[in-house]
Structures are given as structure tokens and as C-alpha cells.
Amino acid sequence: MIKPMVNINLNNVSYTYSGRLEPAVENVTLSLDSGEITAITGLNGSGKSTLARLILGLLKPQEGQVCLDNRPVNSYTLAEVGEKIGYVLQNPNQMLFNTTVYNEVAFGLRWKGMKGEELKARCNQYLELFHLWPLRNKLPFNLSEGQKQMVAISAVLALEPSCLILDEPTKSIDTLRKKILIRVLRDIGCLGTGIIVISHDRSFVDALGGREINMVKGKITAYETRR
């Protein structure tokens, strides 16, 4: 499976929330390609999540520019951005829209017009990935927080974006699911999907490998490549 590449470019980007004096993200210049695993680390409030929202065009920088494939991110609609970049929120409850786990994974695909056997095969593939097949007929809201997180990730992955952004994915999952998640992310990373994880979970970031970007008070303080 060869996926189209996506190139994310941030040029001198700064963002300050209204009513705040200090910028949440300050003078960030960054280039990310699909096929890379990148971890953005830092303490709570260091601007990691804000950076993700800037990349997705959910926030508009006061200074600098964010480009996807050499076009400003704001010239895309959100649905078009979603084609390129999958985004999983910290709180999975805010992205569960359906009455069964199966429909949740099928949701985006159906909107794209996928039907019949193709849809079924695709959903099964991504449900299996996180061992969600036995839960396919359950109401997503009745699952445990860790299971919900897994459903949200597989629903976004099923759309096969070129790049995946995960915001604190290990917040409510236990060590067993963490292991599964690490394996899956490394696998899809090998297949060419770019992965950006925002995390302060040291053991998770270390196990994932790839590049690490550390943020302190909105600024990138260190780049580090491992393995």
C-alpha cells in the first residue's frame, strides 16, 4: 500500500490566545514529512496541543504561516485537511458520533461514499487492529475510557490519512493497550504514514522511537533523533 505523501511546513509561527499576554506558541519553524514518527514532548501548557491545532488549521496564527503541501492550510476546508491529516483528540468522548463501534469506524468512510464489501472489509481491518472486533455492536459511550480511545484512533486510521496526529493518546489507557498502540503505530509508520504524537509519557515516547521535539513555554528547545 503506497500512500500519497504530505508535507507540513511551519514558518516562524506564533499564536497567542486572546486575553493572554504570553504566546502559547512562539516563533516555531518546523518541517514534517509523512513516513516519520515525531513525538512532541513538554510539560502541560507548553504549547504542544496548540501547535497541533495550528497544523490542522483549527487556529489561525497571528504571525507566520502553516502550509500543507506548499499551500496555506487556511485555503483548505477542514474536510480537505482531514483527507491528509487524521486527528485524535485528548478526550475521545468528543469524537464518538454513532450508536455502535462498527458504525463509528464506518462513519467517515460512508461520508466519502464507500459502500458494500469494500466498506465492510476496511472496517473489519481497522477493528481487528486494536482487538475491537468483539465490541463492534456495543454503544461506544458505554465502553471504558481506554477502549473509547482505541475506537477513536481506529475510526480516524480507517480513513487512511497520510499523517496522523494523536493528542495525549496514553492518558487513560493501561499498559497492555499502550503496548498494542505502540506496535500499531510503528507498523503503520513503516507503511509510510506520518505520525505525530503529543505526549508527556516518557516510556511511551521512548518505546515509539523516531524524532523528538521538546517544547518549553511555546518554543522548540530541542530536536533529537533516536534510532
Partner: peptide, 11 residues
């Protein structure tokens, strides 16, 4: 009840 799981190391 899992009071630390949402916090970063310093917190």
C-alpha cells in the same frame, strides 16, 4: 482514583 494519570511529571 487515577489522580495522577492526566498529569505531567512535574505536576
Amino acid at each position: 482514583d487515577e489522580s495522577l494519570s492526566m498529569l505531567d511529571d512535574r505536576a
